[in-house]
Nucleic acid binder design. Structure first.
Length: 423
RNA sequence: GGUGAGGUGGCUGAGUGGUCGAAAGCACAUCUUUGCUAAAGAUGCGUAGCCUUAUCCGCUACCGAGGGUUCGAAUCCCUCCCUCACCGCCA
């Protein structure tokens, strides 16, 4: 959520920065501003009347003690109460409407976020390694998965539906070994505290990180309990500190957590057509940081480097791109995507998206810290995949496939996987 | 799921209709004094909003949440949520 004071003081600048995302948000900004004015005027009157009531009620108390007749004042207060109820309803309604609209306005892109209209304009920041060459025709992971018996898409469809997969034997073991490898790497080498969190969350959590109210159709929901299946560990992990005032010394707070992620992918192109690449459920190891405003941009660089390290250790060719203003997510101020090369696809796959949300999420979830002067300020929040598993699995088997159809396991993963190859 | 107890400021814990945003203690911050790694004293110390040039002052709200009674509610009534204990059930 944006700071309403920023909108009041500098509406044109806010509109201009939002316009860089594409779409027109100026009408929303104007609407919020007009509601804000009405809201404050109603609030001021309500508070004045409440003050009157408090004063008169004390008079009644004193009067009764002294045996005086207080019926005239009581009648007066009854009149005030009627007015308080009326004006109070106005104030509350305005407050609710203002918040609802504010929750639907995306974050301002950071000055460091390149301006552009769409994904085509995302600058490439760096490339690591190079695409491996094969003296045979590299296969797609679905073909490899089937011939090795490690992936079973039909079984996923049978027990749940399309875009659900079953990993078998060495496939299941590979997935599990990757999870352990990633958790160990980030917790022991990069200074993140490992957390294991619930996969079902309250709606407030999704509001906090920005999925609700606007993207409710993308998450699975259990109406009976009003709980949501998490679309990413970002939601429960960041919300660990919702409505808290953390100590400056605690920052930066750094968490790494593994969770499955559940996404309805309503309206997504390519659902169910490309093996593991877009699933309704996939595993992910997520990195989350809570920082001060002064350090968040540096921390974004570090976080991105931490995620890249995964691919470096596994020897997977990748590139980092910087998302332009037209392509960054709803709550993000700046985002780097890490894309790993998948030889069987002949393309890059996004395996990590590292974002700095500034104080946008912190404001939504009332996450603050006390600064040197003892003043409460909103934290900055960041997160990035470290990394998504299904696509990492794809890149790994496609990259390390051999002419005989077996898959070599890269050296650093062998202690986790338990052998040097699959097949 | 059943029964019982309870939810007050960072923590402990008073407060059963009026001047309580809330005693006291602890913790914390600053200052003072004495001084050998600590003690004593003083002061300060919740959050949000409104007003405002202002993080001054002032005002309003908040004692699990939401309703109700009343001129007035942390205090009375109702509903819900949560925590703890025991029982049942269960991975």
């Amino acid at each position: 959520m944006l700071d309403i004071r920023l909108l009041r003081e500098n509406p044109d600048s806010v509109k201009a920065r939002l316009a860089n995302r594409g779409g027109d948000h100026s009408a929303l900004v104007d609407e919020v501003l007009s509601i804000d004015t009405a809201r404050r005027s109603a609030e001021t009157e309500r508070q004045k009347l409440q003050g009157d009531r408090n004063r008169l009620s004390k008079e009644i108390g004193m009067g009764k003690k002294n045996g005086q007749d207080t019926s005239a004042i009581e009648a007066e207060v009854r009149g005030i109460n009627a007015r308080i109820e009326e004006i109070g309803r106005e104030a509350d309604e305005a407050d609710t409407r203002q918040r609802d609209i504010m929750l639907g306005i995306p974050n301002l892109p950071h000055e460091a976020c390149p301006v552009g209209h769409s994904a085509e304009e995302n600058p490439e920041v760096r490339v690591w390694g190079e695409a491996p060459k094969y003296d045979f025709q590299p296969k797609d992971h679905t073909a490899l998965g089937q011939s090795l018996g490690i992936l079973d898409f039909e079984a996923g469809t049978k027990i749940t539906g399309s875009a659900f997969a079953v990993y078998r034997g060495a496939g299941a073991r590979l997935e599990r070994s990757l999870i352990n490898f990633l958790l160990d790497l980030h917790s022991t080498q990069h200074g993140y505290t490992e957390v294991n969190v619930p996969h079902l969350v309250r709606p407030e959590c999704l509001v906090g990180t920005g999925q609700l109210p606007k993207f409710g159709d993308q998450v699975y929901h259990s109406p009976t309990d009003d709980l949501y299946l998490i679309p990413t560990a970002e939601v429960p992990v960041t919300n660990l500190h919702r409505e808290e005032i953390v100590k400056l010394e605690q920052l930066p707070i750094q968490y790494v957590g593994y969770t499955p992620c559940f996404r309805r992918e309503a309206g997504s192109a390519g659902l169910g057509t490309r093996g593991l690449i877009r699933m309704h459920q996939f595993d992910k190891v997520e990195l989350v940081k809570i920082t001060t405003p002064e350090t968040s941009m540096d921390e974004l660089e570090k976080l991105t480097a931490n995620a890249e390290k995964v691919l470096q250790i596994l020897g997977l060719h990748y590139r980092v791109i910087e998302l332009c203003t037209g392509d960054i997510g709803f709550g993000s101020a700046k985002t780097y995507d890490i894309e790993v090369w998948a030889p069987g696809q002949g393309s890059y796959l996004e395996v990590s998206s590292c974002s700095n949300f500034g104080d946008y999420q912190a404001r939504r979830m009332a996450l603050r810290y006390k600064d040197e002067d003892g003043k409460n300020r909103f934290c900055h929040t960041l997160n990035g995949s470290g990394t998504a598993l299904a696509r990492l699995f794809v890149a790994l088997v496609e990259t390390y496939q051999q002419a005989d159809g077996t898959i070599a396991i890269p050296e650093p993963l062998r202690p986790y996987f338990g052998s040097a190859q699959i097949g």
